[in-house]
């Protein structure tokens, strides 16, 4: 498995873990309040910090074990994979964000809109890495 495919696996798992962490907190808070929890800036910052720190630690370990492969720029196939995955992930964000806007138009729940838009950003990032993995395995 190439360094970049390993990177995609690791980042996908980190982001899925981060999303579970974030929405578990939001669900618990909403349950305690009896309504959709409002945006909590501290929780968003905690999510970002956890993702960044976990990424730095695990990517450093991967880069050290990969040696010179980690320093090499992406080749033509890897660039195509990154471009396609990024393009398809854009559609995931768009569909998820439209779902959030539709939910707001029907329910007028601004707090839920915040969470759904944040979820769409998370899903977009996760989808990008999942598409990369699929393209590395199935072929471009």
């Amino acid at each position: 498995m190439s360094f970049r495919e390993k990177t995609a696996w690791v980042m996908a798992l980190i982001l899925i873990g981060g999303a579970i962490f974030y929405f578990d907190k939001v669900a618990r808070l909403s349950q305690a309040l009896g309504q959709t929890a409002p945006p909590v800036v501290g929780l968003v910052i905690a999510y970002v910090v956890v993702i960044v720190i976990a990424s730095i630690i695990i990517m450093s370990v991967l880069a050290i074990s990969a040696g010179k492969e980690a320093d090499a720029p992406a080749d033509e196939r890897e660039k195509i994979i990154a471009d396609k995955a990024g393009n398809w992930a854009g559609y995931v964000i768009a569909v998820a964000a439209l779902g959030g806007l539709w939910h707001y138009a029907v329910n007028m729940d601004g707090n839920m809109l915040f969470h759904l838009i944040f979820l769409s950003l998370m899903l977009g990032q996760i989808a990008e890495y999942v598409f990369q993995i699929a393209l590395y395995r199935r072929g471009v």
Binding site: M1, A72, R77
Partner: peptide
């Protein structure tokens, strides 16, 4: 040719068609 070993593997397995330059 300036690509990764995984790209050569993908070419040999028919999972990737290289650029004209490659």
């Amino acid at each position: 040719i300036g690509v990764t070993r995984q790209t050569i593997i993908a070419i040999e397995q028919g999972r990737y068609s290289p650029s004209l330059e490659s």
